[in-house]
Simulated scan of single mutants.
Amino acid sequence: MSSNEMKSRIILYVDMDYFFAQCEEREHPEIKGKPVVICVYSGRGGDSGAVSTSNYEARKLGVKAGIPISLAKKIAPQAIFLPVNMELYRTISDDVMEVLKEYSEKIEQESIDEAFCDLTEKVNDFEGAKMLAVQLKNEIKQKVALTCSVGIGPNKLIAKVASDYNKPDGLTVVRPEEVLQFLGPLKITDLVGVGKKTGERLNELGVKNIADLSKLTADELIREFGHAKGIWLKQASQGIDDSLVKERSGTGQIGRIITLKENTKDLNTIYDAIDQLSNDIHMKLQARKLSFRSVSFIAISQDLKIHTKSHTLSASAKDPGTIRDHAHELVKAFLAEHPVALRRVGIRVANLEEEKGQRTLGEF
């Protein structure tokens, strides 16, 4: 191992592949391999709204995030169009994040489907990080039945750019001595934080790729983009990023969901599943020394509609009995209102607090 590697931080970035669409493919195996488009409907009726994301089959046909649903249907009339199902995606995201927590104590969840992990204390070098990443990808595939793309680098910037380098189901490792060679040929907009307008202005200045950008002086960049952005562009073009991996809000819940052996509205069968989930969630709370303030019951009916029912506690709790008892009440109340057969059931606890300081995770 080189002295360069010994001094370097080792940061891993996980980016779930076409996450919303992949979640839908997992739930409905019959649509896998077909173009799938996830839509945010505006509520005005018809096809009013925009595409949230699509799988690779739909992207090959020209369906991109942000375009109107009506346009997407003209481009790919054969595609399967589904509404965004955030409850399902959040629950699956929780499962992914729980796997990540087995690999690193320092995790920063960037969004519902992306996270940084600091591996500096976990592995000796980048080769060790690569082996760990292979193991992590396999575990996510086994436990969550989804693929992800992983980037590993000496800082957050490089790890994130690397995760996007080889998709889907990719793994890209960039060692400290490879940073400039890796970044050089990439488009300027491949740098996280460089948008379309900045990219266009840099093109006007004769900058075609990150290697060109790195040749501009800090003064030239400050003149064009202001002090803060100019300095950032100069550092980013050289692969410099000192920002730390910090836990942030968005990790303040733990959820589990399970598929029942058969569609049912039998209370005792559902209670049995709820008891199992309650114990699972309690073990996760115990491992992270957390208490909770709210319990939610998630019901997915046989027509695949998702319903949730929640209860907020008057004081924090951490025992499995409280999760179980409130979940049972929520199940009973839900089935009284909606006497439908359920296909899947889940529980989520939220408003998590650390047992010692009683600070909510959202405050970090």
Rank of each mutant, 00 (worst) to 15 (best):
S3F: 08
S3K: 14
M6N: 13
I10D: 09
E27A: 07
E30N: 06
G43M: 05
S48T: 12
G49P: 02
S52W: 05
T53D: 05
N55V: 00
A58P: 02
A65M: 10
P68E: 07
A76H: 00
A76P: 01
I80H: 00
F81T: 00
L88F: 03
E110D: 14
D113H: 03
E114A: 13
D118W: 05
A129V: 07
L132Q: 10
V134I: 15
I140K: 03
K141C: 08
Q142R: 15
L146P: 00
S149F: 02
K156Q: 15
L157V: 03
D164L: 07
D169M: 11
V179P: 02
L180T: 08
L183D: 02
L183S: 02
P185K: 07
L186I: 09
K187Q: 15
T189D: 15
T189P: 03
G193I: 02
K196D: 11
T198Q: 10
E200C: 05
L205P: 04
N209V: 11
S214N: 03
R223A: 08
R223M: 10
I231M: 05
S237E: 05
S237P: 03
Q238E: 05
D242E: 15
S243I: 06
K246W: 06
K246Q: 15
E247F: 14
Q253S: 13
I254L: 14
I257L: 12
T259I: 12
E262G: 10
N268I: 13
T269G: 05
L277Q: 10
S278Y: 06
N279T: 13
N279H: 15
A287H: 15
R293D: 04
A299I: 04
D303M: 01
T308A: 07
T308L: 09
T322M: 12
A333W: 08
F334C: 05
A336E: 13
A336W: 08
L342D: 09
E353N: 08
G357I: 08
T360Q: 14
L361C: 12
